[in-house]
Write a protein that binds this DNA or RNA. Structure first.
Length: 505
RNA sequence: GCAGCCUUAGCUCAGUCGGUUAGAGCGCUAGAUUGUGGAUCUAGAGGUCCCCCGUUCAAUUCGGGGAGGCUGUACCA
């Protein structure tokens, strides 16, 4: 504003204000800190150790892939490039942020096929990005940890991954009965569609197939009535919104309903129930054989149906799966911070995808794998009371009384670190009171104070913040507070490390 | 994607029937206070009242559009 600009209108004054960007993360993204970040890292560590123990080797791939390498796996293709973050490179090629870790694996395998051991057993964790509407606990960037076996067509590979998934849950401290790996086979679904007389050559086959699979997938949420409605004319939900159904006739609905309602408690009887519906179809028979082989392996290795169940309502998305599909579900309920009952449902899943590498190589390379959603699992663990990641070592904060002594104090801190302690020098310029508040806010266990008085005597003041907090709880009155020793003592500077170790041990 | 509700300080929220300088509590910074976390008291900083357009002498307030958030639903590789 210039000197002679008299009484600018409010409007004008407003325009002249300096633009300040709003400090915020983009929609559906967030920062992670503290205990939450520690928990995530620890979970990744725990799961990685299980994967490693099974012989899977770590892989990390780039965040971006060329868009055509990620491809589209939705058979309906009803929303072409939606859902991914994509940008055009300066050479005109389109790149997309990966939306899962499976497509990059297929690209990696195809690219390096000749020099990879086969079967290839790799695991990978990292963020993936999806450009869709975020919701509570649903972000546009989240962490996945996957394990896949590429180049093994047999059911042992699928069964192993299911058992490993159960092992992961237990390694994380989730007790048996609080989780369940539910297993189905795509070929059974194909058999069922054939058995109810759906014509694969009909124009609306693909649409109806998806509608039927989606309906079956909702069994645990909507129950038999909801699924029946979705298989027939359609279903109206509480908000009055109408979902169009698959338009099956009564006999067809009955068969699908029978399939979905099969009891999950016993693998043998579940298989028998499924066999009754699809054993006369070629793909149904194949699916049954595959499931039976997996079930036999589970039994042989001591994994009963309370951990690994055969469940015909598992659909597992609509993507690229060709055989066994599985889903890890948390079965317990817990109250969230608002006191509402939260159910977590699926925290991961996977299956066999024999066609994925074929896109690149032209030859069919069988593969099977699993993906665990770490963020959702972390939220669940927190509510289970198992979300307390190991605290880092106790922190020692060294305060600065006189700025000229800072070089010496830095040397003191270095000595503490050399002795294996976690220690830092206060790096601000505020007074002692603020320095202690800082130490408190940081959760420091100990504070070291070396002022003029201490220096003269070759001692330092060592203050125990935890003990002090306990004491202050009993003190009401200011005079008493000031008279108190503040839970501190003077120690010889030479004995500092030993004294600290005595307190924190 | 569709529908409903919402958006004022770092947080939780008042408030302005359209009018001078928009408030509280908590939090933050500093002092009272010893060079010492709590409690108490005092002072201070911090706001494009979500954004744009319109109506008006005048809009944080009214109207339209947009964005963001929440809830439900759909989708979910």
């Amino acid at each position: 504003m210039t000197e002679n600009s008299e009484q600018p209108s409010k409007h004008k004054a407003k325009k002249q204000k300096k633009f300040k960007p709003k400090a915020r993360t983009p929609r559906g993204f967030r920062d992670m800190t503290g205990a939450e970040l520690r928990l995530q890292n620890q979970m990744l560590q725990t799961i990685s150790e299980v994967y490693e123990a099974y012989g899977f080797a770590a892989l990390d791939t780039s965040a971006f892939e060329y868009a055509d390498a990620l491809g589209k796996f939705l058979p309906d293709d009803d929303r072409p490039n939606e859902g991914v973050f994509a940008l055009e490179d300066d050479d005109g090629q389109w790149m997309s942020l990966r939306y899962d870790l499976t497509a990059p694996l297929a690209r990696h395998v195809a690219e390096h096929y000749d020099r990879l051991p086969k079967p290839l057993r790799r695991y990978q964790f990292g963020p993936v990005w999806r450009n869709e509407k975020p919701g509570p606990g649903r972000y546009r960037q989240f962490m996945q940890i996957d394990a896949d076996t590429v180049g093994a067509a047999n059911q042992a590979a699928d069964a192993e991954i299911c058992m490993m998934a159960a092992d992961c849950m237990e390694a994380l401290g989730i007790e048996r009965g609080d989780y369940l790996v539910r297993i189905n086979n795509r070929k059974i679904m194909d058999g069922l569609l054939e058995a109810i007389g759906l014509d694969p050559l009909a124009e609306d086959f693909e649409t109806r197939r998806l509608t039927i699979l989606r309906a079956m997938d909702k069994y645990d949420r909507l129950g038999l009535d909801g699924v029946t409605a979705l298989l027939g004319e359609g279903r109206k939900d509480e908000s009055g919104d109408f979902t169009k159904g698959a338009g099956l006739d009564a006999a067809q609905i009955d068969k699908v309903a029978q399939m979905v309602a099969i009891s999950v408690d016993d693998r043998t009887s579940a298989l028998e129930g499924m066999a009754a519906l699809v054993k006369d179809t070629e793909s149904g028979k194949q699916g049954l054989d595959e499931l039976a082989e997996m079930a036999a392996l589970f039994t042989k290795l001591g994994y009963q149906a309370d951990r690994l169940a055969i469940d015909p309502s598992v659909v597992r998305g609509l993507g690229y799966y060709t055989g066994p599909v599985y889903e890890i579900e948390l079965t317990f309920e817990a109250e969230d911070e608002d006191g509402e009952l939260a159910r977590f449902g699926s925290v991961g899943g996977g299956g066999r995808y024999d066609d994925l590498v074929k896109r690149f190589k032209g030859i069919e390379i069988p593969a099977t794998g699993i993906s665990i959603g770490v963020s959702r699992l972390a939220a669940a663990l927190t509510l289970l009371g198992k979300g307390d990641a190991a605290e880092p070592a106790p922190l020692v904060v060294v305060t600065v009384m006189d700025k000229e002594t800072r070089p010496d104090l830095m040397a003191t801190v270095a000595d503490l670190r050399a002795a294996g302690l976690r220690a830092e020098l206060y790096m601000g310029d505020s007074a002692m009171k603020a320095q202690l508040r800082y130490a408190d806010a940081r959760g420091a266990r100990l504070v070291v104070i070396e002022g003029e008085d201490e220096r003269a005597e070759g001692v330092v003041t060592l203050k125990d913040l935890r003990l002090g907090a306990e004491k202050s709880a009993e003190i009401e009155d200011n005079v008493e507070w000031r008279a108190s020793e503040h839970a501190q003592k003077q120690v010889k500077k030479a004995d500092l490390v030993a004294e600290i170790q005595k307190i924190i041990s």
